[in-house]
Design a protein around this nucleic acid. Structure first.
Lengths: 188, 188
DNA sequence: AATTAAAAGAATTTCGAAATTTTCTAGATT
DNA sequence: AATCTAGAAAATTTCGAAATTCTTTTAATT
């Protein structure tokens, strides 16, 4: 979808130049695409694209978590346990929360932090940074895609996150890779 | 290293705004880094960074070539054979060429095309695009790093490329992954 | 009717300057 | 002598407009 500068300029009340600057920055994360002399457009969403993002995320996350499990120390374990604890707390309260939008914001942020912590002990800054970008693209692609937000959905997610963190802390690489695959397989 | 706008502005004779635009585009490829309110700097080079880029490239190239060998058809084989033929032709003539700079330009371009063709049959546009970026960063990191450009160096490279293309066309995944590892191991 | 050509309109890119922020330098204070 | 502060210099960011390029519309020709 094309991003019309006139409309955005009205919405955000800034000069065309500032818009350009901001959109260009979104390009560096992969949320917006740019073509010379042809302006900006939102990265198109399609079933193929969603599968692509999910598959690539799976590749990076497995690779990163494997290495983290090999070289990560106590500090990594502690950070991971903390991130999971926080995430779990939020996930359990979601069904009871009145403000759906707010709790989703909290959950999204906690989920991101959990998955980034998983791979954070990797020795490859390039992998970590690429994962961050791809995770953002993943969220962009799947926002509003989820039909059912019933309690059964979050029960499943809770179990998946638990399986991941258990395997990671047990340093069981094969189990952890499987758990991550299970977590993402609905999007493949 | 910081990129001083005043100097670049003199060199390229353009407004600060155009510089900003161009540098921002180099960010999207990962050749330049940007920090809010603190301008641009060339991605720093170090032994760790070089190893990181090499390792990540190895991961992506192996993954991409494996999938290409699984689903790539005749068209892929033909493109790969062509790219290798062209590369080989250039590599053989390098010792005899008078203009070192020119032949290196030709070689660099042909090498890039060869490696991109290797993974081009992958079903993941995201992997292909990420590889392109990482390959550029690889070149950026290793430019001027090579000490010895004697004929023995290119003889080794020629053999490595040959091993890669042979294994790829024979659809021998294990051999191809090994060949790619051998090709990059001097940089790990 | 379809295709092409020209002109009008809209969007992109570049420019130079002004406003803001950061960084550097020199002097004062502890 | 070292640290802190104030002022100056430099750099970054934003702005509005001009120049270029692309897109759409309309008219003309085949």
């Amino acid at each position: 979808m094309k991003l019309k500068p006139a409309i955005l300029q009205d919405d955000y009340a800034c000069s065309p130049n500032t818009l350009r600057d901001v959109l260009m920055r979104l390009c560096t994360v992969g949320l917006v695409e740019f073509e010379m002399q042809r302006g900006f457009r939102a990265t198109p969403s399609s079933a193929e694209r969603r599968r692509d993002v999910a598959r690539f995320r799976l590749l990076l996350e497995r690779e990163g978590v494997s290495e983290s499990m090999e070289i990560g120390g106590i500090a990594w374990e502690a950070k991971l346990a903390a991130a999971h604890h926080k995430l779990l707390h939020i996930e359990r309260r979601i069904p009871d929360e009145a403000d759906m939008g707010l709790s989703m914001t909290l959950w999204t942020e906690a989920e991101r932090e959990f998955h980034e912590t998983l791979i954070s002990a990797s020795s490859s800054p390039l992998l970590i940074e690429t994962f961050s970008r791809v995770y953002l693209q993943f969220r962009q692609q799947f926002v509003g895609q989820q039909r059912d937000f019933g309690s059964s959905y979050f029960e499943a997610i809770i179990a998946e996150h638990q399986a991941i963190v258990d395997a990671a802390l047990a340093r069981d690489q094969a189990a952890c890779r499987d758990a991550i695959h299970d977590h993402l397989k609905r999007n493949l």
